[in-house]
Each structure stands twice: as C-alpha cells, then as structure tokens.
Amino acid sequence: MKYEFDSEFDGCVRQTFQEVGIPPDQPIPRFARGDVGGRREGASFAKAVLALDAEVTNVTRTAYMAKADDGYEVPVLAYQVKQDRDHATLEPAVLYLHGGGMMFGSAELFEPITKSDVAATGVAHFSVNYRVAPEAPHPTPVEDCYAALLWLHSQGKALGIDNSRIAVAGLSAGGGLAAAVCLLARDRGLIDNPPIAKQVLLEPMLDDRNIEPGDEALAPFATWTWDDNWTGWNALLENRAGLGDISAYAAPARARNLEELPPTYIDVGTLDIFAKEDEDYALRLKNAGVEVEWHLYQGVPHGFELRGRQSVIVKQAYKNRRAAVQSLLLRSERAKLS
C-alpha cells in the first residue's frame, strides 16, 4: 500500500513546526525501546504546540479527588463554562482520559484542548489524572479511571450532572482506557443500565499485540512508532506485552464480548499504526449490535490534531468529535419532547 501525507495537512505541519521553532525538515525524534524517560521529555512538543492557541477564558477549572480502592486519591479536574449554576437542571458530562502512551501526560498538559472542547460544546469535562506506568502498572491506571467514574456517578446530582448522560472519552492511551472503563462498567453492573451514555475513542491504543513493525511502508510516516508502542505496553504490563493471558481491561482489543457497550464514536488516521486495530474494534462493536460512528482520516498520522492544527482535516475532526459529545445534549431535548 502506498502512503502519503495529505498535502494541505503537511503544509500546516510545517507551519506549526515553524511556530514552535522546529526546522520543518528535522526528523521526527526516535527513542530506543524501553526509554520511558526520553519519551516523557518528548512530551514537551505537545506542550509547546498547545501553548500556541489563544487561552480560553470562559471555562473554569475546579479540583476534586476520587478515592481508588487502594486508598489513593485520584485528582479530577472539572472544566465547565462560566455561568450561574443552581443545579435545578441536570446537565451531561464527559469523563475525559488524557493520552500519553500509558507512560506520561496529565490533565494539565491537555488542558488547552479540554477547555476548547468545553467552550465549543457547552458540556462539562472531568479530566482524570490517573497514575501511569511503569511506576503504576496495570490495573492501577484503569482502576483510577473507574474510581473517577464511580465518584462522578455518586456526586452527579451535587455537581449538577445527569447520571444518565455521562460519556467516557479519551485520546490515544486515554482512548484505550476509556474503552476499558466501559468494559469494566458493563461487567461490574455499574448503577444504571446502560451505565455510560457514550464512549468517544480518539485514535485509541487498544491492542498490546501491535508491538512489532507490521508495515515497512508505513514506518516513515509513524509519529507513534512500534518501538513507542512496545515501550508503552511493556511499561503497563510489566514486560508481558503480547503474551497470551493479558486482560481485556488492559488491552480492550482482547475482549471476546463487545455486546451491551454504549454507542461509540471512534476515529483514527490512515498513517497511524493504530488504524487497523481501531477499525477492527469498530467493526466488532458494530457486529455486536453497538451503534458506531467511525471516521478514518486520510493522510494523517497519530496525534494529527496537534501537528496540523490549522488544517481542514483537523478542523473537520474536531467538528465530528464535538458533535459526538453534543449528542448528549440532544438526548435531553428528545426526552423533553417525548
């Protein structure tokens, strides 16, 4: 298969690199397998790009804590549009799980995107600072996220949140965790039926078996490489990635049963090493009777929303992603009419 960047997107990538002071022809940094520290330092690129956009001033941030089973207090940052809230009308919410390959990232790092999403959709986002590997291997990250979901359910009314309209969303590793949280919620019989209104999986990291180069032609375009994936999965799974007994709550692509999961939005770029596993997961969800909205964006790699932020394809992706979240608001309108 022949791969190539979308030409307009590629031009926008060059513009972004120029704005952050990176020579446009500088090779993408590559790190050795197992180098967690180097990849954590590399996250400074995302921070620099996110700092380019104008600050969103009409969204507030409030810090909360959700207690995990081991007693750890998981930080949860709530982002909401500034307004007078009497909580007389309960509103939808998103439990948001940040990216970072299971090894790095934070709610604060992705705060500019979260604030922009809240401002654009009007839907509150609760962003979880889950613990990351290798210091906190599986099941700690997903259990932290599940604890945050339980907290949001239990405190929903006090926060002005409608428990029947909570979505779980995540980017990259966060997308994998979002999928895993939905599996956990289904299997543990969380509160309502269904417990989650929607799962929004953005370029999700789903399959620990995808750790060896599968397509040499794709390799030059990969911004998240197979070596990166090997490092992230082995950090999470304590050097057991790809083995036969990995839990679906760590790697959702391992799940045998995808029935009774919430309606799903899922997207990815064709130049992403996650493209096949994400497409397979979307098809399996559909075959299991789950409502699926699937987008495969041509000619863009992993993390395309950061690199080509001014491009037509990124703007379209944001439009589609935010519409998926705003469907939670439409559910309320339909309920009023019925």
Rank of each mutant, 00 (worst) to 15 (best):
M1H: 13
K2F: 11
F5K: 02
E8R: 11
C12K: 09
V13W: 02
R14E: 14
D25V: 07
R30A: 14
F31V: 10
D35T: 08
A43N: 12
L50P: 03
D53I: 01
A54T: 13
E55S: 05
V56F: 00
R61V: 14
A63G: 02
Y64E: 03
A66V: 10
D69T: 03
D69P: 02
D69Q: 08
D70K: 09
L77E: 07
Y79F: 14
K82A: 14
D84T: 11
D86G: 00
E91R: 10
A93L: 11
L95R: 06
L97R: 04
G101R: 00
S106F: 08
P112V: 13
T114Q: 08
K115M: 09
G122D: 12
G122E: 12
A124G: 10
A133C: 07
A136H: 15
H138A: 11
T140R: 14
E143W: 06
A147P: 07
A148F: 11
L150M: 06
W151H: 07
S164T: 11
R165E: 05
A167H: 13
V168H: 05
L171D: 13
A173W: 01
G174A: 05
C182R: 01
L184S: 09
R188A: 09
N193S: 15
A197Y: 06
P204Y: 03
P204D: 02
L218W: 07
F221C: 05
T223S: 14
T225G: 07
G232Q: 06
G232R: 01
W233C: 03
A235N: 06
L243W: 04
A248C: 12
N257A: 07
L258W: 02
P263D: 14
P263M: 06
L271G: 04
F274C: 04
A282S: 12
L283K: 15
R284H: 04
E291D: 14
Y297F: 15
F304A: 05
E305M: 10
E305W: 03
L306T: 01
I313F: 06
I313C: 05
A317W: 12
A323S: 04
V325C: 03
A335M: 07
S338W: 09
